[in-house]
Design a protein around this nucleic acid. Structure first.
Lengths: 352, 352
DNA sequence: TTGTACGCGTTATCAT
DNA sequence: ATGATAACGCGTACAA
């Protein structure tokens, strides 16, 4: 038995197709008695809209796309996407939208996928993540006429609508926390500086140090991987006057760095303080538990979905309030070696 | 300028719509010269099939669904999905299929989503993950007439087509490795035993121990989270005659357990050997580096996609060969305390 | 409220 | 065999 169509509903209710359509979409043009009869018939027959027909008719795909250009290995260790997608979900499903997810290995394929989504009319809009500093995608999507929401820290030029938790306050709080603990040589292990979220964290670190009046600003750039985190840590700690604190751009590298340091007789936090970024599940269960920056990725996803759906509707994108990144102080940070300071750690931060 | 349709192509080529359709689908019924003319016209106009129209007309969604029922927190720390999805991707995109991803918080919503995908005709088939021991989903999907591929370890009753890397050989190798190192009290920290992949690993561990002739089989069940891993570790190590080795059902718990042990003066691997499961990126960079079981999740995804597309086509599902789970020996396993054995660690395993 | 054209690719029918 | 005509899938929108 094939799925009932509105024609079936119309027949059983004894009205026309169009009356059914109006009734089902709660639009004026049908009397309330007939409307009831129609809804009744629809319920009896178990009618559900056929999304294929609907999509063709309204010229919308009723789906939005998320294209992720990363190698499986890089993706594996990044806890961002699952949470982010969970955040998208409620908004999308309430609106009858689906998420098309494409995982591609490189940015050449990425472009192909965007072009295909546009050409085949499969998506009404897309999310853009992992924005690079001079990224061709905004222009490409503009050319394709595809509504897009950039997911990430706010861009310097708010030409394109970017939705993201602002990393800066979290990093600033981490640096301030370390300063309060008496540290003065606070290095940074950054992500790729050609990616907006790598750059944004590095900038926040540099700014915070500058404001604290420190000149020693050593930053080692990595690709966010555990291995590069280890390399950076080794490089920093083997230098002359090694830092007494390292601010890492993600938890993975912080963890890897912490392990390396531990294996080389460097005690944490006695000899070296460490902060991460992300607050992954394991962070609280490490030894010592990792002080890190936490962002609410789920509500971030919800905000991104809200914005994209507004764009798709052609509505005014409302300003979105996102919870800021905040510092979670645990045990991997402590007083600077030799510092007598026992000033209380940063004000009002939670300890989880 | 709206996208060109086959009507436009037909006009410029001076033929009928149907001729165009035949030509574009490489089907007989058009002369080779006309065919060339048509293809030429299509190319010039930059014609691309409109997936909405195509979907309606062939009564296929040209999309398959993946519904994941997990809390964002659980999902965050699981590296499985991103890699798995990357594995699906190539197969799907080559066939012009998209992946619809839905992340829902609980299994009630999960059922709703499946029903909606079916009722609205949004998906031609679905992947089912995290199968529970008495899972209602196979029956539900059968009722809905929705082709489905179960993703996970092979089921005892191969009634439903399950595609998955077999966990057992990996766990068996881990146990054997520990036995070779002289351990006799080898405990297991398992995942939920009502989930097929939790159960399957626990069974493999029990079987391997039984084959080795050991009676001491302590297993603590967890929910795969870091916190429950710590709890289980504490419980095991505080018992009388604590185990000298623990086989964890995932890396996250192994890591958490390792941290807890380290913080309580238990040296790894001198006092306690530990193995994980998954080979997450950080595993190799821990201190000591984690001995774990690695599975090729990407090719697993490819296999699942192959099977589902075959089902959607109504084709015979071919038997799929998947690489087995294998042990990666690192530094978190060593000779049992007091054991003189210096037998070489398991044969032919790679050391990464 | 109803009839009907429309969106767009596919396919069955029919004429050449 | 080749190719044109028309109907189909299903919900929406506009004229009547």
């Amino acid at each position: 038995m094939p799925r009932p169509t509105i024609a079936d509903v119309a027949r059983t209710a004894g009205v026309s197709k169009s009356a059914v359509s109006f009734a089902l979409n709660n639009r004026p043009g049908v009397g309330s008695e007939t409307r009831d009869r129609i809804l009744q018939a629809a319920r009896e027959l178990g009618w559900t809209p056929n999304s294929k027909a609907r999509a063709l008719s309204v010229s919308k795909a009723l789906a939005v796309g998320l294209v992720v250009a990363r190698s499986p290995e890089t993706l594996r260790s990044d806890p961002f996407f699952p949470s982010f997608i969970a955040g998208l979900e409620t908004l999308l499903s309430d609106r009858g939208y689906s998420l098309l997810l494409h995982v591609v290995p490189d940015s050449a394929r990425e472009e192909q996928v965007y072009r295909r989504l546009a050409a085949e009319g499969r998506a009404d809009g897309v999310f853009v993540t992992d924005l690079r500093v001079e990224d061709p995608r905004p222009a490409l999507l503009a050319e394709l006429g595809m509504p897009a929401v950039i997911v990430g820290p706010a861009l310097p030029e708010p030409f394109w609508p970017a939705v993201g938790v602002d990393d800066a306050p979290g990093i600033a709080a981490a640096v301030q926390h370390l300063v309060d603990l008496g540290h003065s040589r606070i290095a940074h292990v950054s992500g790729p500086l050609n990616m907006v979220h790598g750059r944004s964290r590095a900038d926040a670190w540099a700014t915070a140090l500058a404001e604290a009046g420190f000149r020693d600003r050593r930053c080692v750039e990595t690709d966010f991987s555990a291995e590069s985190g280890v390399r950076a840590t080794r490089e920093l700690l083997k230098s002359q006057e090694p830092p007494t604190a390292i601010v890492y751009a993600n938890d993975l590298m912080a963890m890897a760095g912490m392990s390396w340091a531990g294996a080389h007789g460097i005690r944490i936090p006695d000899d070296l303080s460490i902060t991460g970024f992300e607050d992954t599940e394991i962070a609280a269960h490490l030894q010592p538990a990792l002080t890190t920056v936490s962002t609410d990725v789920v509500s971030w996803g919800a905000a991104a979905a809200t914005r994209l759906l507004a764009l798709v509707d052609g509505a005014e994108p409302a300003t979105l309030e996102l919870p800021e990144a905040h510092l979670v102080v645990r045990d991997s940070t402590g007083p600077a070696p030799g510092a007598s300071t026992t000033k209380a750690p940063a004000r009002g931060r939670r300890r989880t």
